[in-house]
Structure formats: structure tokens, C-alpha cells
């Protein structure tokens, strides 16, 4: 059943009440959604090397680096408020966290400009070329 009529409102007034969150993108799927002791078991063991960060996660060595959101862009974590029972109903999401940079981790490979996430950060510039108003 298609539900193309329902819309999802982004509640912006929630943005003022958020706290900045530390965000890590991990090179594995963790089959879990919910609380975890990230700072105790993960963040605490991160080592800052010259060109990369390293950490051990589930016995594997990860190498990572911090990337900033592109200029003019902000990172948000959106979460749903009162999930409705059917896909016909309108929905609402609020901003639960804000971030300006994130750390992504590779398995073994040192972070480099070929990493997907680094490439993704170039998207806004291309999008501007594709969608920006023509100057004439």
C-alpha cells in the first residue's frame, strides 16, 4: 500500500534543546539498536597517532580519522516522535543531537582520500553545480 500522501514534519524547535553528540561510523554492522557503554569500552581506548587514530574493537584493529561536515552543513541525529501505527498517518521527527564532525573507522586500511565518507563530503559541491540557479 503506498502512502505517498503522508508527510513527516521536522520539528525544528527541538534543535535548541540538544547536546552535541560524539559520532563514530564503524566498519561493521552491529546488530543492536540502543544504549551501549561507548565511552568506557571504545572511546577510552582510542589512540591519537600522527596521521590516524587507532582503536581496537572486538579484537580487530581499526584506523580512523575525524572529518568535518562540509561548510554550510550541520550534522543532525533525527529521531521519531510517537511512531504511528500505520503508514497512512503523518509522522514527526525531532532533532535529538547535533554534530559538526564525525570519526569514521576503517578495518585495517589507513584513512585516505578514497574512503567513501570522504568522497561523500564532496557531494554538496556537486549538488550545488547540478541544482544551483544558472547565472544568466
Amino acid at each position: 500500500m503506498s502512502s505517498n500522501c503522508s508527510v513527516t514534519t521536522l520539528q525544528l524547535d527541538s534543535i535548541g534543546q540538544t547536546e552535541p553528540a560524539t559520532v563514530h561510523l564503524l566498519p561493521c554492522e552491529i546488530e543492536h539498536d540502543g544504549p551501549a557503554e561507548v565511552s568506557r569500552f571504545f572511546t577510552a581506548t582510542i589512540k591519537d597517532r600522527k596521521h590516524e587514530k587507532t582503536v581496537s574493537f572486538r579484537g580487530r584493529g581499526l584506523k580512523g580519522q575525524e572529518v568535518s561536515c562540509p561548510q554550510g552543513y550541520t550534522g543532525l541525529v533525527l529521531s521519531e516522535v510517537n511512531k504511528p501505527g500505520s503508514d497512512q498517518e503523518d509522522r514527526t521527527v525531532k532533532v535529538s543531537s547535533v554534530f559538526h564532525n564525525l570519526t569514521y573507522w576503517n578495518l585495517e586500511t589507513p584513512p585516505n582520500s578514497d574512503d567513501g565518507i570522504v568522497m561523500a563530503m564532496a557531494w554538496p559541491d556537486l549538488a550545488e553545480a547540478i541544482h544551483g540557479p544558472l547565472d544568466d
Binding site: 561510523l25 554492522e29 552491529i30 543492536h32 539498536d33 567513501g116
Partner: peptide, 29 residues
């Protein structure tokens, strides 16, 4: 636009988010 690589998850603050996608919201013509 969703930026999606296989086998990725997030740590957000003190929580795990299994869905490792990164969404982009960019102005569109």
C-alpha cells in the same frame, strides 16, 4: 540522498545505531 556502504553502524553518544547510512539533505532545483 542516502550514502550507504554495506556493513556499517553508528555510535551516537552512548548508543549503537545499527543502520549505518548517512543521509544528505541538499538544495534541489
Amino acid at each position: 540522498k542516502a550514502f550507504n556502504e554495506d556493513f556499517h553502524s553508528w555510535f551516537i553518544g552512548q548508543a549503537v545505531q545499527r543502520d549505518g547510512r548517512l543521509l544528505y539533505v541538499t538544495p534541489m532545483d
